[in-house]
């Protein structure tokens, strides 16, 4: 589901010497458009949702994101932190379906630019031809060196066919296509639900393991008609 290309995103973006906030922003923007960092970021944020979406629907999602455009309404530097308001990452997957990942705020510490704290994360992800998923989470910390996103707040995922997932937290290893949480998980789908107290998703959703007090409830479709 992530780009299957052999080139894995390289470790750390080149360290940018100290600059004033504004031209750093300009540098970040231009860097964002052209340099390979963008490719890392481009893969990173959508991958968060891809991995989660995979968790949710247990379908692997093979196309990889195509072009990307980072847009931020206003940005400011305060107390050594670059604050971007409403950063939005939009693009199209290779089979031309739109995705968008946005946040109310992205806060990046100028001294350590690999860490981006995202607040008010919201993403819309195409899953397959007919279905898409929306994902929202209060906040998460994205580490570009480790290529991980640590969402330490509740995550809600809803798909266009009405299925829903609620996770207490999620540590996402984006390059590795892994996601784990040791907080309760609840998934509701058309005719049933799955609950457990821990979850791990491996190989981009190929293997999903619910752990600790797994409870599955299946209401066979016939039952619905019977009860009317």
């Amino acid at each position: 589901m992530l780009a299957r290309s052999t080139d894995t995103p390289e470790a750390a973006p080149p360290h940018v010497p100290g600059r004033s906030g504004t031209d750093r922003l300009a540098m970040f923007r231009t860097a964002a458009r052209h340099s390979r960092n963008v490719r890392a970021l481009k893969i990173a944020l959508p991958a968060l949702a891809l991995v989660m979406a995979a968790l949710f629907l247990f379908q692997s999602y093979r196309s990889s994101p195509g072009s990307v455009e980072i847009v931020a309404e206003t940005s400011a530097v305060s107390e050594g932190k670059l604050v971007m308001a409403n950063p939005k990452l939009e693009g199209f997957t290779e089979d031309n379906r739109p995705y968008s990942v946005s946040a109310l705020r992205a806060v990046q510490d100028i001294a350590n630019e690999a860490i981006v704290e995202l607040q008010g994360i919201a993403a819309t992800l195409p899953l397959n031809d007919e279905m898409s998923a929306t994902i929202d989470a209060a906040r998460g910390v994205f580490d570009r060196n480790m290529n991980t996103l640590d969402v330490n707040s509740e995550i809600n995922i809803t798909t266009s066919d009405g299925s829903q997932a609620k996770l207490g937290s999620a540590l996402i290893d984006i390059a590795g296509g892994r996601m784990t949480t040791d907080k309760p998980v609840e998934i509701r789908f058309k005719n049933g639900s799955i609950n457990s107290d821990a979850l791990s998703v491996e190989q981009n959703g190929k293997l999903v393991v619910f752990d600790k007090r797994v409870r599955v409830n299946i209401v066979p479709p016939k039952a619905e008609t019977a009860s009317q």
Partner: peptide
């Protein structure tokens, strides 16, 4: 009776998509 809901509980559940 196939119409009734089914509850399954276990320590662990592994779903192998492939």
């Amino acid at each position: 009776s196939s119409g009734l809901p089914i509850q399954i509980e276990s320590d662990r559940l592994e779903v192998v998509d492939g």
